[in-house]
Write a protein that binds this DNA or RNA. Sequence first.
DNA 1: CTGTTAGCGCATTCAC
DNA 2: GTGAATGCGCTAACAG
Lengths: 367, 367
Amino acid sequence: MTIYDIAKEAGVSASTVSRVMNGKPGISEATRKKVEKLLSDHNFTPDASAQGLVTQASRFVGILIEDIRVSHHTESVYVIEQEMTRRGYTCITFSTGPDPTNKARYIQILEQRRVEGAILIGSMFGTDEVKKSIAEHLRSIPVVIINGEIDLPNTYSVLIDEERGTEDCVSMLKAGGRRHLGYLMDVRTPANEKKERGFFTGMFRAGLGHAEPCVFSGFEKTEVNRDQTSTSAGTGQEDTSFVTMTGQNIGTGASPRDAIERGRRATVALLSSMPDVDGILCATDLVAIGCLQELTERGIKVPEQIAVVGVDNTLYGELCTPKLTSLDNKLSEVSLSGARILLDALERKPVSHKMMLFTEIRVREST
Amino acid sequence: MTIYDIAKEAGVSASTVSRVMNGKPGISEATRKKVEKLLSDHNFTPDASAQGLVTQASRFVGILIEDIRVSHHTESVYVIEQEMTRRGYTCITFSTGPDPTNKARYIQILEQRRVEGAILIGSMFGTDEVKKSIAEHLRSIPVVIINGEIDLPNTYSVLIDEERGTEDCVSMLKAGGRRHLGYLMDVRTPANEKKERGFFTGMFRAGLGHAEPCVFSGFEKTEVNRDQTSTSAGTGQEDTSFVTMTGQNIGTGASPRDAIERGRRATVALLSSMPDVDGILCATDLVAIGCLQELTERGIKVPEQIAVVGVDNTLYGELCTPKLTSLDNKLSEVSLSGARILLDALERKPVSHKMMLFTEIRVREST
DNA sequence: CTGTTAGCGCATTCAC
DNA sequence: GTGAATGCGCTAACAG
């Protein structure tokens, strides 16, 4: 069934049918009614790809995310999809996984579908490989990176001040009497490194930290890199007691359960390296939950003996015991902002290329 | 950039470029190399909608789900998307929300995008409204309903024996010494009603139940309908003590937090109506978590005083305290089966229209 | 107010 | 081996 079939039945031309469908003016009420009746009698719906071909507008937008199963990512996708659909766009969403090659592949698929714009969610998309792919395949359409940065004429960034946020978490822990802090991350993403820097900065600011950096087999131990930290005052000390644990040896599994397991393993290593730890800042809620599980299993009381803080403010953190104090990075709001920016860019409205939102600490039982 | 641009540069015709791109035979090695180089130099990717227009194959499949934020739904979407993408299809996914009108709208969008097949996830899609929409808009393409049934020539169902599963849950509770059982559901979906029937059947089988049915303001109280229950033996009794609570007055909010809140409210009503309850079967894990929260707040010990069982075997249930015993309906496997069925149907392989998988009880701390 | 014509980007005959 | 012609379903300019 095409507009020609409808046209023939109505005894009019295809253009007339097209005009009626698109609500164009200059059609007599009589033929309009007649065509509309036929349209609805046949449940006719025009082929969007044919429309797109001639109008040069697919009304598609692409969404890329590493793993939609991660709950705050799900929320982001949901928010964006609702907003885009409301505005007449159809979303094509892919879970790319952590592999950069795969990300490039999916970017190419988006090009093939001729998306009019794209939103990439997560700091792992703010890399040079992705930048190259965008330059090659999405050169002339607006691309919004959420929680990541790419410097190209057609890209936009919505950022969250997680660095400052983690700094504040350290302050909070210090105010709560904690002195021996550790930072746990499961994988080395730009976002997690940003939090790490915030952690370092916070430690220096707080005047915490002492000698004896530790190394763990199977886990990557991050040396404190003074150049990376944004210690403004000269309060930094030579040696630090705090450590950063990465549990990458679990592989690249990106499911929530994997993240929790990596959190547990990182905790094991942290405890053996820093037995006097009394406060742990985790890169994500899931890592924090793994941490909580490990601590609970060892009979270590939270928050009495060790305080634990997560990031993302997920539902998981609200459900676990003790309820998790978490740095709320407001991903839903950030995602909505990203969607709005993309929509504005698509309508050629002036949009600033960079925007930042602010975190908030949700204090619960684990601190 | 089109194949004509490439053709001109290569000094060949567009058909030759097309043939090279699609790996068709009958091209000299020399021109093939030449064209391929140009293709890659320009990062050229053919317009999928133009291809689809001429080949009459969009390579799109649609996925409909009420709310992607519900974690087991997320998992389903993930699994399906991976499988479809692997096989060269692009998924268009929509969260439709509970409103039937909206479902119809999204089905029409899928038609407009000329999807080659569709997967509808959830029992709420097994309704007459949806059936009508499918008949009108997706008449000639395979449509798979996951956990729901629609009887049309082009539809396929993948079902889960949740009715039998809930029956088994009742048996388990009885074996654990529980005698006064209640069933909690947050919204009245076909799936939840199926579990309700399983609950009733299980109760009759177990010979549980006594007098005094209760009614609650603000909540729908389901009268036991003997015709609906599949009591095979004559063990059913006239009156029943068990009750079914529905907390629909919270509105149709479909986010996980809403479901938990509805679970809490239903629990409140259940407790006041049936003070001696010692076992609660919940329609979903989220409802069960709301139930656990309410019980914990009232100082009621789980499982000592009341046993609680959920359905869906979500990560939430693993993280809450006490850890939730849950009926695992294996939604990932079911979804994967659905994807495979759709793929087979798309390839015109013979596929059976109905298939059933079986549940399994995951016993944890709450029973 | 309406029909005719052309063309969007591509794959596929059919010639050569 | 390769090119020219045709059409997928639709919209938009141009006539009338």
